[in-house]
């Protein structure tokens, strides 16, 4: 019995410790009002991404908004029937906006995580092992730098049917180079620190040294670049969709902008432009603002006296 409660207490202690660590990591949010605002926007966006399609009053693509007489409401300004107005095909902008958050969230989240995870791994391995491993991986990043992202993505998407996971994969495949470089240079400096030498001296294996001593000390910068990766992925996805290379089965904010731009109604239909444009701008900016605030906390170089 007593051992049971002890174990329980131990578990609570662990959970508590993890929770404190997480809280410490996010403590900067309390000090930086902008980052806090950004966090609220991100929370709202995640909510939209999860529940937006259910909240939408109409089906974003199938449903056509009609007046009492059955006539299609084309390109009407916000009204009681359609709070955000309608598109030139008589679709409800509000519904499209609510439904469009989901692909943005999926690509942003998984693209960002993929970018961060891939880049972090490559960066740590490359920086820790050095030598030919490093040379090889770094030349690989050089290669992804030199191949222009947008044209290559467009090319790949022309002869593979675009779907949201393919887009996510392509984005991660091109963006990992950013965190990889930064993490690597960070690892290079951590590797020279005494405690790493000390770990070797006490007989720790390469894997152990890398996992327990090097990786935890570059993790913050990995988090940071994962956050930036989210913003980049969202921007990239919106850009692809804007050029007409999005997932054709899903409404996304980028696609909404493409439709208004292609239909030539930008001059009049401000209600059609604003929701997706503001949505994308708000989420990418918020993520960046949070990242910046976090960077101020973790970058020792700029933590000089205030």
């Amino acid at each position: 019995m007593s051992t049971g409660t002890e174990r329980e207490a131990e578990v609570y202690k662990r959970v508590d410790a993890v929770w404190t660590t997480v809280c410490d990591q996010f403590a900067f949010l309390r000090q930086d009002r902008l980052a806090f605002g950004g966090m609220l926007v991100v929370a709202a966006f995640v909510f939209l991404g999860l529940f937006g399609p259910f909240l939408a009053p109409h089906d974003p693509i199938e449903h056509t908004v009609r007046g009492g007489d059955g006539s299609v409401f084309r390109l009407t300004a916000p009204s009681a029937e359609a709070f955000f107005g309608t598109t030139s095909y008589g679709k409800d902008v509000l519904s499209q906006f609510l439904a469009g958050a989901r692909p943005t969230l999926i690509v942003g989240l998984f693209g960002g995580l993929g970018t961060g995870a891939l880049g972090f791994t490559v960066g740590v391995v490359s920086g820790y092992y050095g030598g030919w491993v490093d040379e090889l991986l770094m030349r690989l990043t050089d290669l992804t730098f030199s191949l222009p992202f947008m044209p290559m993505a467009l090319l790949l998407l022309t002869f593979m049917t675009p779907n949201i996971w393919l887009i996510t994969a392509i984005i991660a495949a091109f963006l990992w180079k950013m965190p990889a470089r930064v993490v690597r240079s960070e690892v290079l400096s951590v590797r020279e620190r005494t405690f790493v030498k000390s770990a070797r001296a006490s007989g720790a294996s390469d894997l152990r040294t890398m996992l327990y001593h090097v990786a935890p000390n570059v993790l913050p910068i990995g988090f940071l670049y994962t956050a930036y990766g989210v913003a980049w992925a969202i921007a990239a996805q919106a850009s692809l969709a804007f050029l007409g290379f999005g997932d054709p089965t899903m409404t996304s904010w980028g696609r909404m902008l493409r439709q208004v731009f292609a239909s030539g109604n930008m001059r009049v239909a401000w209600w059609w432009v604003l929701p997706p444009a503001v949505g994308i701008a708000a989420i990418t900016t918020s993520v960046f603002l949070i990242g910046r605030a976090y960077e101020e906390v973790i970058n020792p170089e700029i933590q000089t006296d205030q």
Binding site: L257, I280, A281, T284, T285
Partner: peptide, 22 residues
């Protein structure tokens, strides 16, 4: 200056361009 340039840098360029055009 940081907030405004972050806004401009993180927003995809086509959206800024659309706003400017409008």
């Amino acid at each position: 200056s940081i907030v405004s340039t972050t806004l401009l840098r993180s927003t995809p360029v086509f959206i800024t361009a659309i706003f400017f055009i409008i």
